[in-house]
Nucleic acid binder design. Structure first.
Length: 103
DNA sequence: ATGTTGACCGACT
DNA sequence: GAGTCGGCCAACA
């Protein structure tokens, strides 16, 4: 009971690392896959990240939009995703039918 | 302990 | 489509 006992935060980070380049996942999706945590907790986990190995930018909200309130972080995330091949429409929205990650 | 806030979500008006 | 509300649960004052 150790690797199975990874804390919820750790599970969230590991799950986010599984998102392939050019794809995105929603907070609720991550929460559902991890289990035992809510979408809000995933958002909290992302906010406190300080690890470059975690592709936090590939996690967005259920509407396919960036949820960061800070305009600086917003444009940063958008820039990274576009660099990875993710396309935003006129409304800064990502088409989850196309770029949504399906494990 | 209590109240507020938050990188959320879904339902309702 | 925009605004409001309740539910969710952790962090913070």
């Amino acid at each position: 009971m150790d690797d199975e006992n990874t804390s919820t935060y750790k599970k969230i980070y590991l799950m986010v690392r599984q998102i392939p380049r050019g794809k995105v996942a929603t907070y609720g999706q991550i929460a559902s896959l991890v289990g035992g945590c809510s979408a809000r907790m995933v958002g909290y986990a992302m906010a406190g990240i300080s690890d470059a190995t975690i592709p936090w930018q590939r996690v967005i909200n259920a509407r396919g939009r960036i949820s960061i309130r800070d305009p600086n972080g917003y444009s940063l995330q958008k820039a990274i995703l576009e660099r990875e091949g993710v396309v935003f429409d006129e409304s800064d929205t990502i088409d989850l039918e196309v770029f949504g990650w399906q494990p």
